[in-house]
Design a protein around this nucleic acid. Sequence first.
DNA 1: ATTATATGCTTGCTCTTGAGCGGCGAAACA
DNA 2: TGTTTCGCCGCTCAAGAGCAAGCATATAAT
Lengths: 257, 257
Amino acid sequence: MLALERRNRILEELQIKRQVVVSDLARSFKVSEETIRRDLDRLDKEGLAKKSYGGAVIIEDSAIDLPFNIRKKRNIPGKQKIAELISGLIEDGDHITLDPSTTSVFIAKALKEKRRLTVITNSLEVMIELSDVESWNVICSGGTMKEGYLALTGPRAIEGIGAFNADKAIMSCKGFDMVKGITDGNELFCEAKRAMLDNSREHILAVDHSKFDTIAFSKICDMERADIIVTDEKPDEKWLDLFMRSGIRCIYPEDGI
Amino acid sequence: MLALERRNRILEELQIKRQVVVSDLARSFKVSEETIRRDLDRLDKEGLAKKSYGGAVIIEDSAIDLPFNIRKKRNIPGKQKIAELISGLIEDGDHITLDPSTTSVFIAKALKEKRRLTVITNSLEVMIELSDVESWNVICSGGTMKEGYLALTGPRAIEGIGAFNADKAIMSCKGFDMVKGITDGNELFCEAKRAMLDNSREHILAVDHSKFDTIAFSKICDMERADIIVTDEKPDEKWLDLFMRSGIRCIYPEDGI
DNA sequence: ATTATATGCTTGCTCTTGAGCGGCGAAACA
DNA sequence: TGTTTCGCCGCTCAAGAGCAAGCATATAAT
């Protein structure tokens, strides 16, 4: 196995388990512990992991605006679970919106089994993912490319989203806090997300467990605007309480849906 | 086996195995390890693989999947020549339109050395190619995804294109005939192309030599709407005559531009 | 015919790896 | 809290694999 591939796999393992142990990695990759230590050193220097005594832990930094391709690699299993759950909420023929996020790409992939969907999006990645579906209606908002992201923003994006009325808005975010509500890293993205909410009947929030109790830079909307929250792990009681009180339906894998 | 073919096969192998080893490839293609290393170098530079000590690893998060990357590489020489010639016609700060076509992707690549360009396009491929430029203004028309193409069409695309006034429209086509004018395969695409022409001061037609004297299904416009024609080989005298009579400037490589 | 490109070979040089060793950190126990 | 003990760490070294660069040759494009 190549060194780079080994490091990639260590990263994947980190994503899943949130921490790795030097001795385990050495055994499973059949290399010396010293080599693993050097790998972790490197990942540490690259800012992808944090070394600690005996191993390394994942770096969590939801408030920082990471480049898309790095953010994308995080918590893949969780995002896949969420995508499957959301797929269960969508019916053939639905009109939905998808925002620019890694989760949305997974959702788009999961939705491909559906028929005759109409999708409105400002995400280039979602459009590309959906470029091969048949008899769907994939609509692009238009707008200005946000530098470094595969996403469209600005007045024309808002206008383009507002031109349609969807059944369901599917949305992700960076921060999810009881007081500060639903937040994201960038004002322009928030505007577009709000436009999606404003023009949809039902609001589905896709948010993995790591986002709970975190706050990002810019506010999208209050918690109460969400109708359904889909996540990858059962939230704390305090959250379930809040959802109940606010009349928000919360869906997570153990539900057995 | 041609070098290009070998590199494509290396890419295919990468898709399957996630990683390739220099020594194995050298043995299976019966070339020296240096040659393989040079191949991997190139794939690395093109962003299709990541070199590692002893081999290379796949880059998974490239937004466009392999089929598009491979398709894009057919008939490189002509398209690249055209792209370079067109690059010579564009100045820093220009506002241009780019239509959905392979040639446009090459043009976009060639234009990356320019500064502060504003690009209006309905091509997803062009947008992705330009997703990493700095201080440009990349604007997407919006519209409906045309099934099987990475292009946006329909009334919203037309409207989105019409919302801006460009300096130069850069356009390609499928057919180019003295009587039938400039034609393309699809009515929807033609509409969008016409919108680009209608909203630009100068019309640059990028058309490789194989398109001369061919007719495609749907008419974009008359020959006379073109201001500059850029092609990859010196056209016949009869064409040069026509261009002269119509006041169309024709640019081809031997020009020494 | 001439230029450009691709390939193979050789020669140092670099990178990765595993082993050994002294030192430090962490947890258990007094 | 202080001490002990064990395991982990970082450093260094040497071996070996892999690499870049330059050059000569072969092949393709013009």
